[in-house]
């Protein structure tokens, strides 16, 4: 699977690779901002195409990396193949009544689950790297980073209890 990237003047950037089975996938990031995804089945002459907005393309990317996407909570898994296949998941959670009013320190998030809260979205404002004294409020969305098992523990131990 050799990935080929190419800058087409006036059009944008093209990424293309052939799968082991001989199918070809090409992605174009055009200058107009839209993203086109082409697939060409082995032995076929004409490719089929899908046009996506950047948001749609990101969603597709998340699905392809194997992350679970629910209606409004989503997670992204990043795999670093150079670092012994390190896989890190970032998951969004809407706070439950169980944590409202409590601080990150009180909840012992790091000790109990191994995950870290890296950002909280409150009233359309983002708080990056909240301090241990940070207390959750109703309506907050928390962005949690960790391995996928740790994320599951977080959901079970912190959000539900």
């Amino acid at each position: 699977m050799a990935l080929r990237s190419l800058n087409l003047p006036g059009v944008g950037t093209k990424y293309e690779f052939e799968t082991d089975k001989g199918d070809t996938v090409a992605i174009f990031f055009t200058k107009t901002g839209i993203i086109q995804l082409y697939t060409l089945q082995k032995g076929c002459k004409t490719p089929s195409a899908a046009e996506m907005s950047p948001v749609e393309a990101r969603r597709l990317g998340n699905i392809l990396t194997g992350a679970i996407i629910e209606a409004d909570q989503e997670s992204v898994e990043i795999a670093f193949s150079a670092l012994a296949d390190l896989r890190i998941t970032i998951h969004t959670f809407f706070v439950t009544p169980a944590v409202v009013g409590k601080t990150i320190e009180e909840l012992q998030i790091r000790a109990k689950t191994g995950t870290t809260v890296i950002a909280v979205c409150r009233h359309d404002r983002n708080i990056i790297n909240p301090p241990p004294t940070f207390a959750f409020e109703k309506g907050d969305a928390a962005l949690v980073i960790g391995e996928s098992d740790q994320i599951k523990t977080f959901e079970r131990e912190i959000m539900v209890n």
């Binding site: 087409l8 059009v11 174009f28 055009t30 086109q36 060409l40 490719p47 195409a49 046009e51």
Partner: peptide
Amino acid sequence: LIENRKLMFKETETIIWVTI
């Protein structure tokens, strides 16, 4: 080329180079 979704055609690259 973009609107007609022809970017992946092998001729597209040639066309772009010719216009350049």
